[in-house]
Design a protein around this nucleic acid. Structure first.
Lengths: 229, 229
DNA sequence: CGGATACTACGGTTTCGGCCGAACTATCGC
DNA sequence: GCGATAGTTCGGCCGAAACCGTAGTATCCG
């Protein structure tokens, strides 16, 4: 069964703590330099370099050379979805001593996950859309209703423009901090980018966390009946 | 980042060749005894026992004790989806010496993947439904059209009964042998079980492969305009 | 009860791979 | 050109874990 060997190879790549840290920090979709990743991984630059070489050779990462910097990023959305899936299992799997306080509060509140929103904000947004009957979410799929299209159009997301042939899809993604699904897929991505565009949320420096602005707080309340703590 | 450690733990579990073999043979959704898995893993029963214990403790597998046998199976669909995702990137990732002939022809032709159909049959079925405009498939989502509901109903799948509140969803799943999406999700599962029910396909002993019966060949041709080699 | 089968527990060996220190190459700013 | 920064390569050390042989427990069958 030659295919299982390939699976093992990918698993082993994820299976090292340093590499897992690297992959984890790259799940926000942005590219990072080798040095930044070394800091995130908690190992020396030399060691990090080796890890990055392996990950790149295996096509999990891609590199952009820019002057003396090398920007690493996830090679494809496929890799991002795989990491999501692994995280989902990891969140449920171990009965181990998990100290919930260890998870950064800001991250737990709101963060980006490749191209969409996660954390309490992401989950709350999904819940709000479900409550308004704008979307229907199941275990392994989701659907935008007619009402949902209307809501999203009102929010400034043009579903038709998003592609006549390439449909805009709605995919649930299990949130590892909240253990409940949030919105991924093209709908999730469109929602997130529209929120950035409106200035409702802003990326934090050196973190996957995002902060909800004052305007965003009002906006989420008005548009989605969503009250954030 | 305590969460990356959990991810690494899961990755390390997948990352051993013996364990990868075990997980891979369990992706067909059936339960297997420790001895059968030892054979599949290619290591001694003692070693296998240790691996199974680790996988079970991490909640990737679940056990059913029956007499002196222990039946191991994937602990949840979540684990199945994770393995699908890992396989998908493993299939794309390595430029390594991959000998395509090594993949068993029967497996390549048709097999089960947790609860749905994969291989050429699975991909062809998905293609046929797309061609008939019964479903729309994108990278990370799918949708059943009105025409699709009609086709499926004619095939004996009652979408309404499948759940009023729990909608029947359509999810693409990248096939590692064909490198193209086939149908997963509740639609994929319903299709597969209906095919078994009609006697169109049959499980092979000691393999994840399935064979298309004579009746199945006619049925696929008549119902889905699908000609199999 | 007694032998056979299914599985698990323990101990010792060996290999694999992560890690860092030191040294090397490439780019930037001056 | 020169020093500084970003990044990689090399070599040696060391710990974790996979593996099997042996031995032990549970279950089936006659």
């Amino acid at each position: 069964m030659t295919t299982a060997i390939d699976m093992a190879m990918v698993g082993a790549l994820i299976g090292d703590p340093a590499r897992a840290n690297i992959l984890n920090t790259l799940t926000d979709g942005r590219a990072q330099t080798a040095t930044e990743l070394a800091y995130a991984a908690g190992v020396s630059p030399q060691t990090t370099s080796g890890h990055l070489a392996k990950l790149t050779e295996a096509r999990l990462l891609a590199v952009n050379k820019q002057g003396r910097h090398r920007y690493y990023r996830l090679a494809s959305p496929l890799v991002g979805r795989m990491l999501e899936a692994v995280m989902a299992v990891a969140a449920v799997a171990p009965p181990r001593h998990r100290s919930p306080s260890k998870i950064d509060d800001a991250l737990r509140m709101a963060r980006t996950c490749y191209d969409h929103l996660a954390g309490r904000l992401g989950v709350a947004l999904a819940d709000a859309l479900v409550a308004k009957h704008g979307i229907v979410l199941g275990e392994d799929g989701g659907e935008v209703t007619g009402e949902g299209s209307r809501i999203l159009a009102g929010f400034g997301i043009d579903l038709a423009a998003a592609g006549q042939q390439r449909r805009t899809f709605c995919r649930p993604c299990i949130d590892w901090s909240e253990r409940r699904p949030h919105l991924a897929g093209s709908i999730g991505a469109a929602l997130a980018s529209r929120c950035f565009e409106l200035g409702w949320i802003e990326r934090q420096r050196d973190s996957r966390a995002v902060t909800v602005t004052k305007r965003g707080r009002r906006g989420f309340a008005n548009t989605f009946d969503l009250t954030l703590p």
